[in-house]
Design a protein around this nucleic acid. Structure first.
Lengths: 357, 357
DNA sequence: GTGAAAGCGCTAACAG
DNA sequence: CTGTTAGCGCTTTCAC
């Protein structure tokens, strides 16, 4: 049923070799025959068989995407969407390699090879309990997004987590916050580690003391944010943080719920900052002030890296970083009240309860 | 680098044909040689080249997934996750065909052919402005999820939208609701149409009158739910609905926000029911009572249909339907107050405002 | 500038 | 039961 290269060779009165060359834009074929062939191919709706192509050459024009955490977290869904766009623009197709295929007995890398996948993009926050050794040792080009890996054919790309949190702290400091807490992401995840470093550096650069009780474990989920906030508030009012930075929007939302449940007003009593800027963050109920990751840029860089690797081009910047920006909504903002200067210090003042909206 | 069928033929001291047959479980090959070949293949970590395989036979072992709406809506993300699981279990790979590839000049169907995709799964609520004609006319097996299509190689599968809403209404009726409103999904989407029918039938079967002002347009988004509720409440208190059924969880959440903003308590003043049971619905802030779609069942049915079609098996049930269930949380439940019987009728009684949580 | 032919890795006749 | 062989649709030398 589908038309193949021989059909169009026949129609154009040339050989299959010429057709192939013409279609692939080789300069060795006469301009006029090239145009003719192209025109006929167009007319006959010819589309080369990808299997045949990848069988002979190496180019399968497919990239694999491996999501360690699945699609439940909206940020990764949006990353996947971005990857799709980037690939589409370059004529690549995307094959979705789920975490299910990551079984000891199966061999992820072999799967990629058998599919002639040209490279893989890996993201998700489940890093610690996965073994990427085989992938790293293989010569399969891979880009890890917001993960910390290294190997000869491996690159990583991330938003500038360090500077992100530093800038958030600077901003909070400008807004007179002096007691700033941090809710971490999944233990062992690179992003969380970097953001924690940014937290420490940010505090230092603003001359604020680091206080262990202001650092909470988490795992990027709503529930972890909720629990973290409950614990943060379980101290005398004057010791409570006035601002909390969370490693994800989901945990920030959980934190917000907990704060409100405790009768606090956000942001007047306590400011909350998220990370990612997922759709949810913009909902009026949440109005989350959050650090927006440059998804499109990151994803485009990732795909470019793989392409350059495949073309054997210039030495690759092993670790690339892209800047995002703080989106200020209502969960953290220049305070109108709540923080009061007492002597030399800004302190938190309990206020009447208020509503989410 | 990767080992091929010839390598293992050599190692096993047999011909490539024998290896191929052994590996594909043909009964015509001696049990002992079969085992031997399999063992060696295992040892040498042989994985057949998918391109070669799909070039010769028809089986590419890939299914395409076409998401008309992208991944922003969490329900579709979870459907995609389900598809992935189902495919994994059957040894299929999933190629993600985004809406971007749906350009007039490109030809979706050709793309599938060139990739030797064995069949496609289509879902998303953007039906009206897409032209599936080419796909339907092609002999490419396709299953539409919650969409209304027909054609010789086309099947559709959906949750039982009609009965879903009928059952919701029955339940609300048991809970003494008499004024039940409906917030539609995207105009022209099959699911929304069916659910509206269910709404009408449900009302009728409970002996409740249909009132046009209780039917609101929508498009499955939070914003549309919010706006719909605002309009529903813009009437004298005694005419307001006491329960609102929304065609998605997102719009239900928007509706909830609007109700609370108007000083109503959910569910004491007004009950809200969603559809889909996405993760968000279970969050305590929302506590959404919602109709849970049987994602796993639907997706498995969809994949099975395609497989049977490929195997030329039994006539296919053109339209399959799967039952879901109402998940009762707090946004709608057996009322504790708020609705009061006056004479023969239950009426809504304004109450003091309350909080989301 | 063009074409004949080899071959990518595999499966499916067909012979033996 | 096993092996030989002819392709699947394409790209790529290598002659002409």
């Amino acid at each position: 049923m589908p038309v193949n290269i021989r059909d169009i060779a026949k129609a154009a009165g040339v050989s299959v070799a010429t057709v192939s060359k013409a279609l692939n834009g080789y300069r060795s074929v006469n301009a006029s025959t090239r145009e003719k062939v192209k025109r006929i191919a167009e007319e006959m709706q010819f589309h080369p068989n990808a299997a045949a192509r990848s069988l002979v050459g190496q180019r399968s024009m497919t990239l694999g995407v491996f999501l360690t955490t699945g699609l439940a977290h909206p940020f990764f869904a949006s990353l996947l969407g971005g990857v799709d766009q980037a690939l589409q623009a370059r004529g690549y197709d995307l094959i979705y390699l789920s975490q299910v295929s990551w079984r000891q007995e199966y061999h992820f890398v072999q799967h990629c090879r058998s599919r002639n996948v040209e490279g893989v993009l890996v993201f998700g926050f489940q890093e610690s309990d996965m073994d990427f050794g085989e992938l790293i040792e293989s010569k399969l080009p891979a880009v890890f997004i917001d993960m910390d890996m290294s190997g000869s054919h491996i690159a990583t790309i991330s938003s500038d987590n360090l500077e992100a949190i530093r800038s958030v702290i600077r901003r909070l400091h400008e807004w007179n916050h002096r007691r700033i807490a941090f809710v971490a992401g999944q233990a062992g995840s690179y992003a969380s580690r970097m953001r924690f470093e940014g937290y420490c550096e940010g505090l230092a650069s603003c001359g604020l003391p680091f206080r262990q009780p202001y650092v909470m474990d988490g795992d990027y989920t709503r529930d972890s944010g909720y629990e973290a906030m409950k614990r943060l508030l379980a101290v005398p009012a004057e010791e409570r943080p006035t601002a909390v930075i969370c490693c994800s929007d989901m945990s920030a939302i959980g934190a917000m719920e907990a704060a409100i449940e405790e009768g606090l007003s956000v942001p007047d009593d306590i400011s909350i900052v998220g990370f990612d800027n997922v759709d949810l963050a913009a909902w009026p109920v949440f109005g989350l002030t959050t650090y927006s990751q440059p998804v499109v840029t990151m994803v485009n860089q990732a795909v470019s890296i793989i392409q350059r690797q495949l073309n054997g081009e210039a030495p690759i910047e092993r670790h690339q970083t892209a800047p995002g920006e703080l989106i200020v909504r209502t969960s953290a903002r220049k305070p109108r009240s709540g923080l009061t200067q007492v002597g030399n210090e800004w302190v938190w003042r309990p206020r009447a309860g208020s509503r989410l909206s």
